[in-house]
Design a protein around this nucleic acid. Structure first.
Length: 892
RNA sequence: GGGCGGGUAGCUCAGUUGGGAGAGCAUCGGCCUUACAAGCCGAGGGUCACAGGUUCAAGCCCUGUUCCGCCUACCA
């Protein structure tokens, strides 16, 4: 089953498996802690340990792998740090489901046993995503793989928590937070997804204390009224000035509520009166503090109504809403119900509607940290690419609110804080304290909450390298060179790494942030399980091979634009991989051991040309990769390989390879062919690592893995590589002649098997000489019997004509005459030229253009005019002659 | 409500200081030419969303309109 040079098509699977193991075994992904080369580092955005590889991972890690492999080939000492995230809530959910399948739950197990169960689960399933990354070809330094819950990283987490607490940047307090009843935990603002839904706006009448009419308030959540402790109006609102309007009766609960005055209330909305529920609404909470109102928590942490809800106690919050509405209706206090679109928060993990809830939580004071993170981007220590994301970053950072970091779940880093049972003192420490630091009491109870998962991932760039120890790794590889996140985690992760990195390391965590786009389905819709439009990268890899898939991702990764993925596209790039395979197959049929250095040899025109184009492709590709324009890099290489190397060079050298021009020339050409294939493989390797390695190993004169190659060999700047512009111009002429002849053949429907007689006329001696010198190439590629070159003179008869710059090509139609067709063809050409000429002539008649445009632009346009006119005139005179020869032939 | 991105060939998209509208796929015509039919050679196809403006010159810069998508937000 091994891929053999005799195989006509490339079979990726066996090749991929074989080479990936080889790379790992040879330690080719390993970074050196004491290498003297330039170091380059990337930390992987750690996928959730519960994750399966999706398109986002695939894109993201392909880009990183391209960068890492590219840098290695340039001679750098590369560290790509891999690992996974413990993903607190997500993992706990998964394991809970797992347990449910076994007929138990975490409460039956208890905390300690449950955490054991999670570790067990991780041992069994946790490396799935890692294996999938390997299928993708990711060249991570796997020996250094980390996990956000491993011992070292946990130490880092505690160290950071303690220091921030001591610096006063972590505090604990009673605030309104977002509460998910299903996950039974607080959520940070970021973890709430807002979604517009069709709801109702309920207008409820709160009678005045004296029993008269009353105030009408509006709410989308009537059940929260049970916890109201005031009604607020704007102090400027005339409607609520009279006496007797100082307080109202809360329906259903029969509590008396004060009518307070607060500028927050918008007089123009509804009746200008706002019910205040400090325990279940963030604004109401603020107002409550201002007016010293009590908070009554009527919705419990389980989503059921509390005892404070009176007779509604124990009802589910949504059921309670129905009941409250029913009751109000019965009492005639429900004025009206209006359909109302509003955005409702959902838990980003389980999509449950979250409830603003009053609760005691831990917070990171974000403003001081954010200030430094803003500055670092402003002064360019960290670049965000594409720059369009900078504004988004600044916006968020400037409006940052304190970060709620405590979670009421079990799986995660337990907060290193202890409460003294005797004096109530809170002790925060790296390790379990022996006694209370205030009273010396020995009964210390550890905080049961764990930290937000993002708290540990915020430390990822330095915690993975051994911090808080001063390791050689940190010294060599921090700050990292680039980070490659999706924009969806710009705030969750990138912003927080910036804050933590700068605060604890004194330097930014990465120099560049390359924010990649979203991979969508072929219709541009976001992929999601519920829509059923998810394309599984592993299926794609299975079907088309990793290389084809990677190249597709790269080819479509235009900055700032989402990628629409479809199988058809991958199929297209599989053709490219196959094309390379076959080109190599062809080359290797001839190369055997006949290659040599190309230095000092007298090379043919196609040889010089292809080497120059190779240099151009190398420059384009490397510049594009360095500036994260992966699509440009892929495009440049694609075009070079297919349309220059295969379509022209390989075709041009065939007669030489088949020995028609002697052994010396054959050997020289083989040496060039070897060189071009050799370098092309290296250039392509970052994109399509497997097939290039496979071919590399079949190429004589290479030793070991392509991953050990360095290119350019002297590690110099690509831009310094020399191009041979003269060869490019000459070959360009030859190609134009060939295309001109082929065009006639195609248009006139002349069979490719029919050899043609062609004569070319030119006044330009250099053109004549060039064509004469490379006659053999033209004869070969255009399928000619005879090619003659002369200076302009008598025009041949019975010919089809094609005009290129400086020369006219005549294809003899003797014996294959179809003058009708040629007449039509020439008329069409002439017509086209007239259209092209129109704007040019118009410009040159414009005095303003001639006067104001720069000289070189004017000259360009004038040249263009001359060129078009000349071409048109030549075609016209040939058309005239054909018509004169065949007067009876009209246009059919 | 605020902000951002996009509208270029039938489809998917490039188009980097304003100066000749491009690619891939699809379509049409011709080829089994000894690396590749997953291929080769050739052809057709666009009022650059709409309307103004700046400029000698606009796909590109400015203003407005419209459609699509996304992010963000504590108007009940």
């Amino acid at each position: 089953m091994s891929s053999n040079l005799l195989d006509k098509g490339y079979e990726p699977h066996e090749v991929e498996k074989r080479w990936y193991s080889f790379w790992e075994e040879e330690g080719l992904f390993a970074a050196s802690e004491n290498g003297s080369q330039n170091s380059y580092s990337i930390v992987i955005p750690p996928p959730n340990v519960t994750g399966v590889l999706h398109m986002g991972h695939a894109l993201n890690n392909t880009m990183q792998d391209i960068l890492c492999r590219y840098k290695r080939l340039r001679g750098d000492n590369v560290l790509w740090m891999p690992g996974t995230d413990h993903a607190g809530i997500a993992t706990q959910n998964v394991v809970e489901k797992h347990l449910a399948g076994q007929g138990t739950d975490r409460h039956q197990l208890g905390r300690e046993k449950f955490i054991e169960a999670v570790w067990e689960w991780r041992k069994e399933y946790g490396s799935a995503i890692i294996n999938q990354l390997k299928h993708l070809g990711a060249s991570c330094d796997w020996d250094r793989e980390r996990f956000t819950m491993d011992e070292g990283l946990s130490t880092a987490v505690r160290k950071v928590f303690v220091q921030l607490y001591e610096e006063g940047l972590i505090y604990r307090g009673n605030y309104i937070i977002n509460w998910c009843h299903r996950c039974h935990t607080a959520l940070a603002d970021l973890e709430v997804e807002h979604e517009e839904i069709d709801g109702n706006l309920y207008y409820i009448r709160y009678p005045y204390a004296d029993g008269k009419d009353g105030v009408i308030v509006a709410t989308t959540r009537p059940e929260t009224m049970l916890g109201d402790t005031a009604v607020a109006v704007n102090p400027d609102d005339e409607r609520y000035r009279q006496t007797g309007k100082e307080s109202v009766i809360l329906p259903l609960m029969n509590r008396q509520l004060p009518v307070i005055k607060d500028k927050y209330v918008d007089m123009s909305f509804g009746t200008g009166a706002l019910k205040i529920t400090p325990a279940h609404d963030p604004n109401d909470f603020e107002i409550g503090i201002r007016h010293d109102l009590p908070s009554i928590k009527v919705i419990g942490d389980d989503g059921m109504m509390t005892a404070e809800a009176g007779k509604f106690k124990g009802l589910d919050r949504f059921k309670c809403r129905e009941e409250v509405v029913k009751e109000l209706e019965k009492e005639g206090l429900l004025e009206k119900i209006e359909p109302y679109k509003h955005s409702v928060g959902h838990c980003y993990r389980c999509k449950t509607v979250v409830e603003p809830n009053l609760s005691k939580q831990w917070f990171v004071s974000a403003k001081p940290l954010a200030a430094k993170a803003i500055a670092a981007v402003k002064d360019g220590r960290t670049r965000i690419i594409p720059a369009i994301w900078e504004n988004t970053y600044f916006d968020w950072m400037n409006n940052i609110r304190d970060w709620c970091i405590s979670r009421q779940i079990w799986w995660g880093h337990q907060i290193p804080a202890w409460t003294c049972e005797e004096c109530g003192e809170i002790v925060v420490a790296l390790n379990t304290p022996e006694k209370c630091s205030a009273c010396g009491g020995k009964k210390l109870i550890q905080e049961t909450d764990v930290l937000d998962t993002w708290f540990s991932s915020a430390l990822w760039p330095f915690s993975t390298m051994g911090w808080p120890d001063k390791t050689p790794l940190l010294k060599k590889f921090y700050p990292t060179d680039v980070l490659g996140p999706g924009f969806d985690i710009l705030f969750f992760w990138v912003a927080r790494m910036m804050m933590m990195g700068i605060h604890f390391m004194g330097d930014v965590p990465f120099k560049d942030v390359y924010v990649h786009a979203l991979v969508r389905d072929e219709k541009g819709k976001k992929m999601s399980k519920s829509k059923g439009n998810v394309i599984d990268p592993l299926t794609i890899i299975e079907k088309y091979g990793t290389d084809a898939f990677r190249f597709t991702l790269a080819a479509f990764a235009a900055q700032g634009r989402d990628i629409k993925m479809s199988e058809k596209r991958v199929e297209g790039y599989r053709h490219f991989v196959n094309k390379l395979w076959n080109a190599a197959r062809f080359a290797l049929m001839h190369i055997d051991n006949s290659y040599d250095s190309i230095e000092g040899h007298n090379l043919s025109l196609p040889d010089k040309w292809i080497l120059s184009r190779l240099n151009k492709a190398a420059i384009n590709a490397s510049e594009a990769i360095e500036s994260y324009r992966f699509n440009d890099a892929a495009g440049a290489l694609y075009k070079f390989v297919w349309h220059e190397f295969c379509d022209w060079y390989l075709e041009a050298i065939k007669p030489v390879l088949y020995g028609k021009e002697g052994e010396d020339k054959r050997k020289r050409t083989l040496s060039v062919l070897w060189r071009v294939l050799h370098d092309t493989l290296i250039l392509l390797h970052p994109f399509i690592p497997f097939v290039t390695e496979e071919i590399w190993n079949k190429l004589p004169g290479t030793e070991g893995s392509i991953m050990r190659a360095i290119f350019p060999p002297d590690n110099s700047d690509f831009a310094k590589t020399v191009r041979d512009l003269e060869a490019e111009a000459k070959m360009g002429l030859v190609m134009q002649v060939i295309t001109g002849i082929r065009n006639i053949r195609g248009e006139m429907n002349i069979s490719p098997s029919m050899s043609l007689d062609v004569s070319i006329q030119s006044d330009d001696g250099i053109i004549r000489e060039t064509i004469n010198q490379h006659k053999d190439i033209i004869v070969n590629l255009a399928g000619l019997e005879v090619l003659s070159v002369e200076s302009s003179g008598k025009k041949p008869e019975r010919v089809a004509t094609s005009v290129i710059e400086g020369a006219t090509i005549f294809v003899s139609l003797e014996g294959i005459i179809d003058f009708d067709r040629e007449t039509q063809r020439l008329e069409k050409e002439i017509n086209k030229l007239t259209n092209e000429l129109a704007p040019v002539l118009k410009k040159l008649k414009n005095e303003n253009f001639l006067g104001k445009a720069p000289e070189d632009v004017v000259k360009k346009v004038k040249d263009k005019k001359m060129q078009l006119l000349e071409k048109q005139q030549k075609l016209q005179s040939n058309l005239d002659r054909i018509k004169a020869l065949n007067p009876v032939q009209g246009s059919s």
